[in-house]
Design a binder for these strands. Sequence first.
DNA 1: CTGTTAGCGCTTTCAA
DNA 2: TTGAAAGCGCTAACAG
Lengths: 354, 354
Amino acid sequence: MRPNSPETSPESKPQTRKRPTITDVARAAGVSIAVVSYALNGRPGVSPATRDRVLRIADEYGWRPSAAARSLRTSERSIALALIHSESSTSRSGHFMDFLAGLQHTLEKHEHSLWLKVVADEEQAATMYHTGWLERRFDAVIVRDVIHDDPRLAVVSREHIPAVVVGHPQISSPHISVWVDEPHAIGQAVDLLCDLGHRTVGFLHSDPTRDTVSRTTQAARVSAARHGARLLTHVTRTPEDSAAAARALLTGTQRPTALVTDTDDTALITLDVARRLSLNVPWDLSLICLGSSAQATLATPSLTSIDVPFTALGEHVGHALMDLLSAGSSSNITVPLPPVSVRGTIAPPRNSDT
Amino acid sequence: MRPNSPETSPESKPQTRKRPTITDVARAAGVSIAVVSYALNGRPGVSPATRDRVLRIADEYGWRPSAAARSLRTSERSIALALIHSESSTSRSGHFMDFLAGLQHTLEKHEHSLWLKVVADEEQAATMYHTGWLERRFDAVIVRDVIHDDPRLAVVSREHIPAVVVGHPQISSPHISVWVDEPHAIGQAVDLLCDLGHRTVGFLHSDPTRDTVSRTTQAARVSAARHGARLLTHVTRTPEDSAAAARALLTGTQRPTALVTDTDDTALITLDVARRLSLNVPWDLSLICLGSSAQATLATPSLTSIDVPFTALGEHVGHALMDLLSAGSSSNITVPLPPVSVRGTIAPPRNSDT
DNA sequence: CTGTTAGCGCTTTCAA
DNA sequence: TTGAAAGCGCTAACAG
């Protein structure tokens, strides 16, 4: 007998922490541990009677297989996602939860779990992905909000970690991509404004690190050009910057009569700026943003926006991951963006008799 | 030789997924696996030369011990936290990230990890805590935003799961509590407003499920009473409700000249309502809220607020958990709230010559 | 200092 | 239908 062998009188309540193991359940049920395992996992080859008894006893004992022990045999499938928490990303986090909900919902249906970590920046995320991979903590990763020369993409490629990238297929490179066609949406927004008669349109992009910045700007430009309209662009980095940019635009000599923003937050800020400049939205200024309907409807006037389906995006990413993990590969997918939801912030320009 | 023994030609690149194990490293280093284990974990009893060599080879092989295998022996310590994602909680999620950052920072220092899950409600959180506990996925849990008859508290008590509750000691009951003294803060806000001369003060609480609602309301009431001021209270459930409540308050016969809100979001909404009623903040209406400075400074005028130190709160919870897990118990702690940060939304009432 | 070995709790052949 | 037993990869006694 080993020293310190715990006194296991069967009747004594496990006052401290002595959670039962499969052995305890097997003994209590008068069967071998194999049978318990079979019964629990719904494997064939156990008589219904035995199965029931085992299950009942397991339940009685409050027993569930230890995750660690189990995953030592059957690599428990899970997906890693690093939540990047910089000051700048704080605003976006509301949507992030929607994304997470959709993602986890899908993963759960396929019996995968999500391994979430909060990190400060992409660099940390990369090292986290690296060590986590070596420690076999997950089977695939998600890379969101790709930046230029993203370190996460580097490790993922180097270590051959299965990955799904939320971003344009081109930057996702060898990995599979789930893409929200923001440029297209921005183009549509500009189109709509031009169709209303606007001839000077502003475009505010609030995050220079995002990979979409050039693509969306380009789309806006093309769209404006097609209508013979002028496009004024500002790329900002912080909310304060955005406010400043909006003010600069709205007090400039070529004041745009309409503005498109890449974010509902930026739109809210712009709304505020306009108000302080005594510009009446939508009559003096039209406004369209990319964002969530929740945020959009809360403002006054409620924002005309293109509502990004964050939950659906999460689900798509989940499916892409499942395909990738099961089939070994998977095709890129484009998440459709709904048409502009017209709310209270657009109107023809005041002097639309150009 | 076992059937299906993998063809392991040492030189062949592990093209697919054949991550090395401790055995591979040991063999490559010409030592036993014990030595590798010792070397890796910095245990004494390995010659520096060997240690270096082992470490180098491990690194070369890109080897890190499998989390599952390791934690089968040494119960890897980790903490569970269920992120509740209901529509109503969406707005609060921005602060949540700050909390998480602080929490994880502390946990990491003590080599604990965070097990995060996104769930829809407290009920799901409770079952998640339950099964997770039985599966030995964590050693303690965090319960945040306690509601009335919280199912999480029920399982935690029933299963004797070590827990730290963010909430009033009284509702945290047998568990240890980390408490932000919101009632006190609200009281201070009301005091300040009364001192400025306000005699009719409104209090908007945006979440009837929170356990703080009665305590904060009571504090506001006491504070107002002390100054002989009138307190008008509204408890709302959704942003729309809050807007309606604010409007009701501001158009009522006894229009308050000052308002206190429990959330920066509510304050923003109130600001919007005031604007639409052509009330000039702060001259026609003073406003103080509980919230984060980030949100507060963004508005126009910038919100006078009591800035909740979410990151610090996370750190405190982390420390409480570490104490609980190591010492077996820990004392309740109260997180101090800073004094009111006076910004642009308070002023004496217009006719303060009462 | 280093190697051997016994498990951790579970899944999964292979025999009975 | 069941049981015995071999590991999964690692840590930690215990021997050498």
